[in-house]
Protein backbone atom coordinates (compact mmCIF):
# COMPACT_ATOMS: atom_id res chain seq x y z
CA UNK A 1 0.00 0.00 0.00
CA UNK A 2 1.40 3.40 -0.99
CA UNK A 3 1.83 5.55 2.09
CA UNK A 4 0.31 9.03 2.16
CA UNK A 5 2.33 12.25 2.26
CA UNK A 6 2.16 14.89 4.99
CA UNK A 7 -0.37 16.95 3.05
CA UNK A 8 -2.74 14.01 2.78
CA UNK A 9 -3.04 12.71 6.35
CA UNK A 10 -5.32 14.37 8.94
CA UNK A 11 -3.43 16.66 11.36
CA UNK A 12 -2.80 15.70 14.96
CA UNK A 13 -2.44 11.98 14.25
CA UNK A 14 -6.24 11.71 14.28
CA UNK A 15 -7.73 8.61 12.69
CA UNK A 16 -11.08 9.25 11.06
CA UNK A 17 -11.64 5.77 9.61
CA UNK A 18 -12.56 2.90 11.88
CA UNK A 19 -10.82 -0.46 11.71
CA UNK A 20 -7.33 0.83 10.97
CA UNK A 21 -5.84 -1.74 13.36
CA UNK A 22 -7.09 -4.51 11.02
CA UNK A 23 -5.07 -3.00 8.18
CA UNK A 24 -1.98 -2.71 10.38
CA UNK A 25 0.24 -5.79 10.30
CA UNK A 26 1.32 -5.99 13.93
CA UNK A 27 2.22 -9.68 13.40
CA UNK A 28 5.60 -8.52 12.14
CA UNK A 29 6.52 -7.47 15.72
CA UNK A 30 6.38 -11.10 16.90
CA UNK A 31 9.50 -12.96 18.07
CA UNK A 32 7.61 -16.01 19.41
CA UNK A 33 4.60 -17.58 17.73
CA UNK A 34 1.80 -19.60 19.33
CA UNK A 35 1.48 -23.13 18.00
CA UNK A 36 -1.63 -25.10 18.94
CA UNK A 37 -2.12 -28.85 19.08
CA UNK A 38 -5.80 -29.12 18.16
CA UNK A 39 -5.82 -32.76 19.29
CA UNK A 40 -5.13 -31.61 22.88
CA UNK A 41 -7.37 -28.48 22.79
CA UNK A 42 -10.54 -28.82 24.91
CA UNK A 43 -12.11 -25.63 23.46
CA UNK A 44 -12.42 -23.97 26.87
CA UNK A 45 -12.00 -20.63 25.04
CA UNK A 46 -9.64 -19.18 27.69
CA UNK A 47 -7.17 -18.22 24.96
CA UNK A 48 -9.95 -16.50 22.99
CA UNK A 49 -11.08 -14.59 26.11
CA UNK A 50 -7.60 -13.46 27.13
CA UNK A 51 -6.02 -12.70 23.75
CA UNK A 52 -5.46 -8.89 23.76
CA UNK A 53 -5.37 -8.75 19.98
CA UNK A 54 -8.45 -10.86 19.13
CA UNK A 55 -6.14 -13.16 17.22
CA UNK A 56 -7.64 -16.54 18.16
CA UNK A 57 -9.62 -17.83 15.17
CA UNK A 58 -12.88 -19.61 15.99
CA UNK A 59 -14.70 -21.70 13.38
CA UNK A 60 -18.01 -23.41 14.09
CA UNK A 61 -17.60 -22.70 17.79
CA UNK A 62 -14.20 -24.41 17.96
CA UNK A 63 -10.66 -23.02 18.19
CA UNK A 64 -9.17 -23.24 14.71
CA UNK A 65 -5.80 -21.45 15.03
CA UNK A 66 -4.29 -17.96 15.20
CA UNK A 67 -4.45 -14.83 13.08
CA UNK A 68 -0.70 -14.41 12.56
CA UNK A 69 -1.20 -11.08 10.73
CA UNK A 70 -2.09 -9.52 14.07
CA UNK A 71 -0.79 -11.84 16.84
CA UNK A 72 2.13 -10.01 18.52
CA UNK A 73 3.34 -13.20 20.22
CA UNK A 74 2.69 -12.06 23.80
CA UNK A 75 2.19 -15.65 24.97
CA UNK A 76 -0.88 -14.96 27.13
CA UNK A 77 -2.81 -17.71 25.29
CA UNK A 78 -0.14 -20.28 26.16
CA UNK A 79 -0.06 -19.07 29.78
CA UNK A 80 -3.86 -19.25 30.13
CA UNK A 81 -4.22 -22.63 28.45
CA UNK A 82 -5.11 -24.92 31.43
CA UNK A 83 -2.06 -26.73 32.90
CA UNK A 84 -3.67 -30.12 32.34
CA UNK A 85 -4.15 -29.28 28.64
CA UNK A 86 -1.10 -27.24 27.49
CA UNK A 87 -2.29 -27.29 23.91
CA UNK A 88 -0.48 -24.05 23.10
CA UNK A 89 3.30 -23.64 23.05
CA UNK A 90 5.34 -20.60 22.07
CA UNK A 91 8.01 -21.28 19.50
CA UNK A 92 10.76 -18.89 18.40
CA UNK A 93 10.04 -17.30 15.03
CA UNK A 94 13.59 -18.16 14.06
CA UNK A 95 12.56 -21.85 13.99
CA UNK A 96 9.53 -21.49 11.77
CA UNK A 97 8.79 -19.93 8.37
CA UNK A 98 8.59 -16.12 8.28
CA UNK A 99 4.94 -15.27 8.55
CA UNK A 100 2.57 -12.43 9.39
Amino acid sequence: MKKKGWKEVPIGGVLKDKGSSVAYNSGSWRSFRPVIDLEKCINCMFCWVYCPDSSVIIKGGLVAGFDLEHCKGCGICAKECPPKVTAITMEPESKGPVCG
Binding site: G5, V9, I11, G12, G13, K16
Partner: peptide, 29 residues
Protein backbone atom coordinates in the same frame (compact mmCIF):
# COMPACT_ATOMS: atom_id res chain seq x y z
CA UNK B 1 -13.83 22.17 16.87
CA UNK B 2 -11.92 19.89 14.50
CA UNK B 3 -12.63 16.14 14.77
CA UNK B 4 -14.10 16.49 18.29
CA UNK B 5 -14.42 13.28 20.28
CA UNK B 6 -17.93 14.26 21.38
CA UNK B 7 -19.18 14.29 17.79
CA UNK B 8 -20.73 10.84 18.05
CA UNK B 9 -21.91 10.88 14.43
CA UNK B 10 -18.31 11.15 13.23
CA UNK B 11 -16.14 9.05 15.51
CA UNK B 12 -12.39 9.71 15.48
CA UNK B 13 -9.40 8.20 17.27
CA UNK B 14 -7.07 10.60 19.08
CA UNK B 15 -3.77 9.37 20.44
CA UNK B 16 -3.11 6.33 18.24
CA UNK B 17 0.47 5.07 18.03
CA UNK B 18 2.43 6.64 15.18
CA UNK B 19 5.67 4.87 14.29
CA UNK B 20 8.39 5.12 11.64
CA UNK B 21 5.79 5.17 8.89
CA UNK B 22 3.81 8.36 9.77
CA UNK B 23 5.29 10.20 12.81
CA UNK B 24 7.52 12.34 10.64
CA UNK B 25 4.64 13.37 8.37
CA UNK B 26 2.79 14.66 11.43
CA UNK B 27 5.86 16.63 12.59
CA UNK B 28 6.19 18.09 9.09
CA UNK B 29 2.59 19.29 9.45
Amino acid sequence: PLNPLLDLENPATVGAIDLQDYYMEHKRQ
